[in-house]
Each structure stands twice: as structure tokens, then as C-alpha cells.
Design a protein around this nucleic acid. Structure first.
Lengths: 342, 342
DNA sequence: ATAATTCTCTGACCAGAGTCAGAGAATGGA
DNA sequence: TCCATTCTCTGACTCTGGTCAGAGAATTAT
């Protein structure tokens, strides 16, 4: 399978890097270096602290300073010390800067339109749908899941979000004090674990497990940020929690949940959980589930990439001359291979 | 509709440029500048003329020369004059160069695998399918269609391909001499027109029309390269030919075709052509079609892009903090806007 | 009050990726 | 045969997009 999948991902990367790259070079009308446009854009209509701008874009302070000076010289931004802290400086767009930014925006629209214009209505719809799919799935593949102490700021933020969501969704609201607790000290090895899912460094989900030796482990605190729902993050958290439970000696995991949490219930059912009788007195629960864990299997999710793939492997159609090349002035076009941009 | 479509294309472009770009920088293990790797790759295992390499990559001769010298100094390639023409020089990979190229290949595989690894089997399948779709549709949008003299090398190449294909596919083969002719002089205004479809400069399809005043115009020489079939090129050629016929005064277009050309027949039927009785004595034809052209309507294919789209418009999920931001060390992450990479 | 830290700026420097103008060898056309 | 053309190389420059080491002003910690 990899023999087919990896090359097609590569072909896509190559193609898209070429196509989007070529076009986006053009789009910046070459009247301003890319770095300047980027910073101009990132300043945003409300202005920012330079400090924040720098960390957001990962810029060197000297570099940022100089680019901003250049923008200021062009009358596009104003830099002045922040009121609260004399060390940090604030950038704001001038009217001219705002206009310039709008121009960039319009040009970006025009570029997007160039992709769409030649297509029929139906093709456009399919293109947009496919783009959204690729976007979603690649985003999904950027989510990492790792154990973390429940006392970190991110962990506490996630759990707080979880509580807030329960409070919004449960018919009677949610008060953590009335629920079976899963305190910080219970979610650290060897008593338990807390997993945090992150996307680009920001927490986007969590899940916890309490170990009870060989007795069933308990799953707790499953939460996925609304921003990334539908990306399979919940399922991956679940799998990771089960693995942790298995490694801690559990043969069975169980959990309880509230009837309003439809997606969660669906996730459990489709992940091999079966509903069982009430096994604790969690007042907010309507359903109790458990799952027997299978032997410590190798995580079966497709093999590693093959030794090597063939050297040039287009998936989608291309202008590659397959039978005979079209005529051409001296320097023949021939079959084009593109650099391994990925 | 554009209000939804353009921003989502932009979001995709931005995302993909960021993601692929970030990754492909990494992949070149930073031990060799990108330009060198690219040329190393493009030399290919069989070697190339420098001249061809240059035109293929659009390189300045001085630049190419220096990069190749650097590669030669590293023992990765050998440059020597071509046998046939003492002016041109040929590059070939050495064993070491070949090994290096294989390393690039392997790294590219590993990068692709990074995208795939975190996904479930089902997600991978969907990702690959969506990528192929995007690839196909963007390729399709790169195809341009323009009128061209039938005497250009490209035009003659297309028509030759067309004849070859007919000869392969017709049960009795195909001999142009026995068929109703459409000679070069008939396919230039005001007697007719020849349209050529191109992808990245190379011809990938053609279609011709002969005008007969207000009498029905005749469509001829419809051919689409196998490389780009399924991309809607045929339909676009057809539309363009009909427009040309309309503009030349025709109210009706007609054409004849052979029963072995299934896709063509399907295209005609789904494009408003209806089968009519034999109207000429083309010996290779089994079907005769005609279509009444509608009034010179505005090419109705969706409106132009809106004045301007909103300033930051993600379509697919992102880590954007939607309700409250996750906690963060001093320099807050805040809602990230990315530069308008397109 | 003093020291440590944070933020920004300046100056110096660098590499990558080109561009441009010749110049010199081969080759092709008249 | 000779002139124009084609290909490649050299040398001299350029622009982006950085990095690095201080230095100076504000702020925070002790």
C-alpha cells in the first residue's frame, strides 16, 4: 500500500509547492519584498506589540526591527512605545498601510480566482471540497498526543474547558464538586495519566485515565476542542489512553458518560466499547461502557515506508509526454521531473 | 458563492504553503543548498545536456554553470562535452551522485510518511483521494485554450496524434486520405479555426471548426491527450469551438464520429448534441450529431470575484482560539494570522 | 538601591540565489 | 570561407532574508 500512497503524497507535495509557489511569487507584485509584505499583513488592522509579532513569526529582533523601520519609512506603519511598558513598542498600520494591506488581500483573491475561473461550476465545488478534505486531514496529522502533568497551565486549561463544556451541555449544568473526582495527583504515574493533544503547540484536547492495578482502568476527562472536532483527535486520544491502561496492567477499561454527549457515545460504540450496567454512582452519568483490551499488539496502522519508492511517480495526469513528445524548439521539453520539493 | 469559495481556496493555499514549505526546508538536511539539490535531482540518472537542464528549470547560464561546478567539485556529477555537438556539455551523475540522489528520495519518502503516519487507514485513503482530486482539478485549471494556426509545429503534432489515435482505435484503421479533409487553409479565419489546449506550454489537445456562413458549422479534429483525459479539457474545447462558430454566424454546429470513440460520443450527448441522420458521406462515421447554438449569451460560469473578502477566513479547522485562548507564557500565541502566501 | 532581566535597536557580517555583460569555442548557413 | 548563432563559462554585482554580538533604556526582583 505504501508503494502507492507515499508516492502520491509526494507527487501532491511537489505539484502544490510548484503551483502555489509560482503563483504566490507573482502575487506580491514584486514592488515590496516578501518579508515586508508578510509583516505588514501580520501587524493586522489593530496593531500589535513588536514583541508579540516577533514571537508569532519567529523573527530575529534585529531583522524585525529593520523591516519595521523600512515599513515606517514608507509611511505604512507607526511604531511607538507601548503605554503600559516602556520597553515594548507597538506597531500600528497607518491609513496608507491599511490600504496596502487591502491591496494584498485583493491580489490574493485574484490569485484564488485564477485557480477557479477556468473550471465549471461542478468542478469548482469539487475542488473546494477536496481542498477542505486535504486541509482537514493534514491538520489532523499535525496533532500530537503526549502525556503531561495535570498541573501545567495547558493541562489545567484543557480540563477547565472540559468542565465548561459539560456545564453548557448537561441539562442540569455541571458542578465538578458533585462529580466523582479525578484530581491532579491521581492522573500522574503510577496512579494514572493525563494526555494532551496539541496542534502547533496549542492544546486542543485531553483525556485521562486512572489505573487500578489489574482491575479496570477508568477513562476520564475526554475533551476535544470544537476547533478540531471531526479530525479523529478523540479516537487517537482514546487509543493512546487504552495503550497506557494496557501498559499499566489493566485488562479492561471503563467509563461513564452523560446522554447529552452524543459524539462521545458514538466514538465509544464504534471503538469497541459496549454498554454495561451502572458500575459507579457518578450522578451525571447515564451510560456506562467498558472494553476488554486485547493483548499488547503492535500498533497496527500500516507498515513503515518502503525502502525506497520509484524515482519519479506522478499520480495525477501531467503533461508528461507519454507516447511521443510534442514538437519543440531546440531545447526539448521532454518528460519533466520536478525537484523533490518534499 | 465566491464569498465562500475564494476564501476557502485562499485558506488552502496559505495552509499548504506553510505546511509543505516548512517540511520541505527540513527535508534537505541543510547540508546542501536547495539549488544544488534541485539540480542534482533534475540531472536524473541518465544525465542531461546542460542546455536542456537550463531551459527546463529556467536557469541563468552563469548560475547553472556555477552550481554544476560546485556539484562536480563535490564529486557528485561529471560534466563533459557532448559527442554530437562540441558546444553543449553533458552532465551525468557519478556513483556518489546517484547515492546522494537516492538519499534525497528516501528523505522525501520519510516526509510524506510523516503526513500519513498519524492517520488511520481510512483517513489515509481519504487524504490520498482528496489530494488526487485537488491535483487533477488544479491541473485542469492550468490548461489554456487558444486559437492557433494549423501550420505551427504544435498544431501539426496534435493533429498527427489525433490521426494516430484514430488509426489505433478504428476497427479498420484510419487513413486521412479517405476521410473528408480539413486542410490547414480551411482552419484559419475566416473559413474556420483551430484551437489548441496547452498545459505548461505543451499542447495537450485540439479541436477545429469549419464555418459555412449561416449554415451549420462543422466540428473536426477533436482530440485530447490521454495524459489529461478526465480533466474536462474536451468539454472546454467544445464550448470554445461552439462560441467560435456562433461568432462566425452559425446557428447550428454538427459533427460526425466513429462508434469506437465512446468518450467523445458521451461528451457530445451530455453537451446538448442530439443524434441526427447522416448528413455527409464520411466513410469512417457511424454517428452524426448536431446542436442548435443559443443566442450570444454571456459566458455564464460564475461571477467575478467579489470586491474583497473578509480579512482572515479559515475554512477548515485550525488552532485558532475561538472561545478563550489556552494559557501561554508571556508572549501570547493569540489568534494567528498567516501571511497571505496566496 | 542595586542587580538581573526584558525588549529593542545598531552595526557587522553572511549565504543563497540570482542577474548581467562579455568572451571564447563550436557549429550552421549563405 | 566567413559571418552569425549557439552554448558555456567568468567576473562582477545585487537583493533577500537572515544571524550574532553588544549596547542602552525600562522594568522587575531582591
Amino acid at each position: 500500500m505504501d508503494n502507492a500512497v507515499i508516492p502520491s503524497v509526494r507527487a501532491f507535495n511537489r505539484f502544490v509547492a510548484e503551483r502555489i509557489g509560482a503563483v504566490s511569487d507573482t502575487f506580491l507584485g514584486r514592488d515590496r519584498p516578501y518579508g515586508e509584505s508578510r509583516i505588514l499583513w501580520e501587524v493586522g488592522s489593530d496593531g500589535t506589540d513588536i514583541r508579540e509579532l516577533r514571537t508569532r513569526l519567529g523573527l530575529d529582533s534585529g531583522y524585525a526591527s529593520r523591516v519595521l523601520q523600512s515599513l515606517e519609512r514608507q509611511g505604512l506603519v507607526i511604531v511607538k512605545p507601548a503605554a503600559e511598558d516602556g520597553r515594548v513598542r507597538r506597531v500600528r498600520l497607518t491609513g496608507k498601510g491599511r490600504a496596502e494591506r487591502a491591496t494584498l488581500d485583493r491580489r490574493a483573491d485574484a490569485v484564488a480566482w485564477k485557480f477557479l475561473e477556468p473550471l465549471t461550476e461542478e468542478q469548482r465545488t469539487r475542488l473546494v471540497a477536496a481542498m477542505a478534505d486535504v486541509h482537514r486531514l493534514l491538520t489532523s496529522s499535525m496533532v500530537s498526543i503526549e502525556a503531561e502533568s495535570p498541573s501545567t497551565a495547558d493541562a489545567r486549561w484543557c480540563i477547565d474547558q472540559y468542565f465548561q463544556e459539560l456545564n453548557r451541555r448537561f441539562d442540569q449544568g455541571f458542578d465538578p464538586a458533585l462529580s466523582i473526582p479525578a484530581d491532579a495527583h491521581e492522573l500522574v504515574p503510577p496512579r494514572g495519566a493525563l494526555l494532551i493533544a496539541r496542534l502547533r503547540g496549542s492544546p486542543v484536547g485531553c483525556g485521562a485515565v486512572k489505573f487500578h492495578g489489574r482491575a479496570p482502568a477508568e477513562l476520564k476527562r475526554m475533551w476535544v476542542s470544537p476547533d478540531v472536532r471531526g479530525l479523529g483527535v478523540g479516537r487517537r486520544l482514546l487509543v493512546a489512553l487504552e495503550r497506557a491502561a494496557r501498559e499499566a496492567g489493566a485488562r479492561v477499561v471503563r467509563l461513564e458518560t452523560n446522554r447529552t454527549l452524543k459524539e462521545a457515545i458514538h466514538l465509544y460504540r464504534t471503538s469497541g466499547y459496549r454498554e454495561v450496567g451502572r458500575f459507579n454512582d457518578e450522578p451525571y452519568a447515564h451510560h456506562w461502557f467498558e472494553k476488554r483490551l486485547t493483548a499488547p499488539q503492535r500498533p497496527s496502522r500500516g507498515s513503515r515506508p518502503g525502502r525506497r519508492s520509484s524515482r519519479s511517480t506522478p499520480t495525477a495526469p501531467s503533461a508528461r509526454a507519454s507516447r511521443s513528445s510534442p514538437p519543440r524548439a531546440r531545447p526539448a521539453p521532454g518528460p519533466r521531473q520536478r525537484a523533490p520539493r518534499t
